[in-house]
């Protein structure tokens, strides 16, 4: 989808998008370091390269909207406004983490910013967002819900159930597919017989929109248009953001299955560089300012990490807390 001149963001919004994307990138790089230092357990899934997807969608949402997302969810959480401290403490399993250390990397959740949860079961988050949309519809709040998922999730049965039921009920929900070309280790062309996931929208009588997922302004514009439609009672939409993850699927994957040159090709359209270049040419940013921004955010990330390292783990005797409402 070509970006119209009218879809350009104002300087303030561009700056917000830039800050969000840089923060996500720096936080993800630091999380990788924490893994190497054995301060983060299990596995993690980084969104480096996909920052424009979460930042662009977040810019189009309003207070009261709800989001569910994938286990590649640190970026979504930060874009929506999760504090770096809450994120880093959760990564390390600390009591002061977003989920009090119970969730970890794959379950970033922050009710206060509308993030209903990242999910570690591929595609399970789709109907959960529909439930939030149902609440908005029943109560007439005008809010919408958004659910992020990957290209891999477009092949699970629940994808079909969800888009079908959301369309029948005209739920105010946006299905946002971040197509990063790989479902875990397998290229999409080997698992999916079509090039564009957005084509599937037609089967559910909803709009399917292909968006340049590296262009944060295009993502914001497409999301805002679909959101306006949903708020107006016209039902759900499927957005396919064409994007790319620079790293492997998870921390143990270096991505050896990728074609030579593929990563470099995508890095030429890096979402942060693209926005910065646009802001330079429009006189909204200079290189020195950009370096200062990066430096300040890096300091913020390091400070959050140091703070989180010093935070306590949950007390062992609290292991059964939060299983039931009375706990």
């Amino acid at each position: 989808m070509a970006l119209e001149a009218g879809d350009r963001l104002d300087k303030e919004s561009r700056m917000r998008a830039l800050l969000a994307m840089v923060k996500i990138r720096l936080a993800e790089e630091e999380i990788q370091n924490l893994f190497m230092a054995n301060l983060v357990r299990g596995t993690t899934h980084l969104a480096i390269g996909q920052e424009a997807c979460s930042a662009g969608v977040a810019l189009a949402l309003c207070e009261g909207d709800s989001v569910t997302c994938t286990y590649r969810g640190h970026g979504h959480a930060l874009a929506l406004g999760m504090s770096l401290r809450a994120l880093m403490a959760e990564m390390m399993g600390k009591e002061s983490g977003a989920c009090r250390g119970r969730g970890g990397s794959m379950h970033m959740t922050d009710k206060s910013i509308g993030l209903l949860g990242a999910n570690a079961i591929v595609g399970a988050q789709l109907p959960i967002a529909m439930g939030a949309a149902l609440t908005a519809q029943v109560k007439g709040t005008g809010a919408i819900a958004v659910t992020f998922f990957g290209d891999g999730a477009a092949n699970i049965g629940l994808f079909h159930e969800s888009l079908n039921m959301a369309s029948v009920w005209k739920l105010p929900v946006l299905f946002i597919c971040e197509n990063n070309l790989y479902g875990e280790y397998s290229p999409i062309r080997e698992t999916t017989p079509i090039d564009d996931i957005a084509d599937r929208a037609g089967a559910y009588a909803m709009p399917g929109v292909i968006v340049d997922g590296q262009d944060v302004e295009a993502v914001q514009a497409a999301t805002a248009a679909a959101a306006a439609r949903a708020r107006n009672g016209e039902g759900p939409a499927l957005l396919e953001l064409k994007t790319y993850r620079y790293g492997g699927h998870s921390r143990s994957d270096t991505g050896p299955y990728r074609k030579p040159g593929e990563l470099a090709h995508w890095q030429e359209r890096d979402p942060i560089d693209m926005l910065a270049a646009r802001m330079y040419s429009d006189g909204e940013l200079d290189q020195e300012e950009f370096l200062e921004i990066k430096d300040a955010l890096a300091q913020e990330v390091f400070a959050a990490v140091e703070w989180a390292k010093a935070e306590p783990f949950p007390p062992p005797q609290s292991l059964a807390d939060y299983v039931y409402a009375s706990d």
Partner: peptide, 25 residues
Amino acid sequence: VRVRDTPISEQAIIGTALGAAITGL
């Protein structure tokens, strides 16, 4: 609005009910 027939979609029924339950219904 409050009482609905669903498609034959058991996973979507439960997931939607969960999302509704955590947001105020």
